[in-house]
Computed example of a mutant assay.
Amino acid sequence: MSEPMNVTAVAERSGNWWAVEVPEIPGLFTQARRLDQVDGMVRDAARMLGREVGMVTVDPKLSEEDERMIDELLAARREATEARAKASRLTAGAVDALRGQGMTVRDVADIIGITPQRVSALANA
C-alpha cells in the first residue's frame, strides 16, 4: 500500500444518491445515500484501488440557487448571533444602570422584560 494521503471527496446529487469523485485518486468514484457515509465509502473504494487515504474532506456541490440560499441562511445566522450578543451587552448595561439608580430587581425586570432571577444574575455577575 502507498502512503496515506488526505483527499477531497466531491459529492454531487444524482437522484437519491450522492455521486462521489476523488480528484486526487484517478478512477475513484463511489456513491452514498448520505454525506456522513461518504468518508467510509471513499476509504472502501480507495482500498479496492490499492490506495490508503488519511483525512477525507467532503465537498458537497450544490446548484447555484441552493448555494445562494445557504449563503443567505448562514449570513442571517451570523447576524442573529451578533444581534443576540449586542442584546446581551445592552441588557447587562441596562440592569447596571437601573439598579444603580436604586430600582428594585422586580422593577428592573418589569421595565426591560426579563425575569427577576435574570436581573439578579446579571447584577451579581
Rank of each mutant, 00 (worst) to 15 (best):
V20W: 08
R106Q: 13
T8H: 06
D96N: 12
R33M: 10
V42C: 12
A87W: 11
T91D: 07
V95L: 01
A125Q: 14
S2T: 07
E79S: 12
S120K: 11
M41D: 12
D71R: 14
L28E: 02
S14C: 08
E64V: 14
I112A: 07
N124D: 14
S63T: 15
V53D: 00
A94W: 03
T30R: 11
L62Q: 10
E65T: 15
E52Y: 00
A9T: 01
G93T: 01
G27Y: 02
G50P: 10
V38M: 06
M103W: 03
R84F: 09
A46E: 12
A46N: 12
G15M: 01
A97P: 00
W18D: 10
L49K: 11
R13A: 13
P23C: 03
L74P: 09
A11F: 03
D107W: 05
V119T: 01
L98P: 03
G93Y: 06
K86T: 00
E64A: 15
G50M: 07
R106G: 02
D44A: 15
E52H: 12
A97K: 09
D36M: 04
G54Y: 00
M1V: 07
D107S: 08
A94I: 00
N16T: 15
A80H: 04
V20F: 10
V22F: 06
W18R: 09
E52I: 13
I112S: 10
A83S: 10
D107H: 09
N16D: 15
D44Q: 14
T30I: 13
P60K: 08
W17P: 02
R47A: 15
G40L: 05
A125T: 11
R78I: 05
L62E: 10
P116E: 06
A9W: 05
A109G: 05
Q117G: 13
A45H: 11
A45R: 12
A45V: 13
E21H: 02
D66W: 10
M55A: 14
E3S: 02
F29T: 05
G113T: 06
A92G: 06
A92P: 04
D71F: 15
R84D: 12
S88H: 14
E72M: 06
A11C: 04
D107V: 01
D66V: 01
P26M: 08
R47F: 15
S63N: 12
G50T: 14
V58W: 05
L62K: 04
Q101G: 07
G102Q: 05
A80I: 03
D59G: 04
P116Q: 04
L98Y: 06
R68Y: 02
E82Y: 05
L98V: 00
R77V: 15
I25C: 07
L74C: 14
A121M: 03
D66G: 02
